[in-house]
Simulated assay, not measured.
Amino acid sequence: MPDFPSSPAEAFAALMEGNSRFVRGDRLHPNQDADHRTALAPAQRPFAVLFGCSDSRLAAEIIFDRGLGDLFVVRTAGHVSGPEVLGSIEYGVAMLGVPLVVVLGHDSCGAVTAAAEAHRSGYAPAGYLGDVVDRVIPSVLSGRAAGLSTVDEFVDEHIRRTADYLLGRSSLLAAKVGQGRCAVAGLSYRLTEGTVHLVAGHGALSAEPSGSAASA
């Protein structure tokens, strides 16, 4: 696997392989030495945009066993998105040429739990925290309409809806995916096991012509 994968399938495989190393405890800690830090200073060349929840247990470079310059990371509570997030993702795709955008959520998410409770009780938190919850509630509603009932099921639904939202709002990202130059993967992380699994995929996430990952 190239150090900086150039295709969506290579980038996705590199992340999944890194997560497997993390789960096994066989981390390589790539691209974390002083020489790489110096070589990277003039310019960055990440191979993936990682849009994830701000949860402190979800440090992307650690759980995917990557290093400096590998991932362009954007994080918000509950991975809720707005203009700043969309602009940051488009910067990674258009200016840095990354071939993969990942939406990363996790089980027992506090924002999703709060949204489910707010919908049940009819009361949302005050202040800007309420704004975060309001942006997650549509995923809870969509999940319940589909017969889902648990927070972790709502988490996966929120990941799927976020991936769809990015493609629906960003014509630039949608065009890159349509051209086969980028892909979007929605991944759900398990806090205890350290594993990730694919819950949403758009584009060529598999090296095989008809890979099932692209339509997960």
Rank of each mutant, 00 (worst) to 15 (best):
L50C: 13
Y123V: 15
M1R: 09
L58R: 06
A207K: 02
M16I: 01
L58C: 08
L141M: 11
I62T: 14
E193H: 11
S108Q: 12
S20G: 13
A94I: 09
N31L: 01
G122Q: 09
S81A: 15
S121L: 12
F154C: 08
H119W: 10
V184I: 11
F51I: 03
V101E: 02
S20I: 01
D107T: 07
R37C: 04
G78M: 12
D35E: 15
A34I: 09
A163Y: 00
L40E: 04
A9L: 06
P42W: 04
S56K: 02
S6T: 15
V101S: 01
E17N: 11
L50I: 15
V132E: 02
M16L: 13
V132P: 02
A60E: 15
R120Y: 05
V112P: 09
G78S: 11
V140H: 05
A207T: 09
P5Q: 04
A204E: 14
S121W: 03
H29A: 10
R181W: 08
V98Q: 07
V199D: 01
T162H: 12
F64R: 08
Q179K: 13
D33G: 02
T76H: 08
E84N: 13
G143T: 11
R120E: 14
P42C: 09
C53I: 07
A200F: 12
D33C: 00
V74K: 03
F154H: 15
D3S: 13
P99E: 08
G18D: 04
Y128I: 12
V177P: 06
F47S: 02
V80R: 14
S215C: 10
A213L: 15
E84P: 03
S139T: 10
A94W: 04
V177H: 06
A34N: 05
V133T: 04
A145D: 14
Q179M: 09
A213G: 01
G69K: 05
G168K: 12
I89W: 04
P125D: 13
A214H: 05
A175C: 07
A207S: 12
D65V: 08
G110F: 09
A94Q: 15
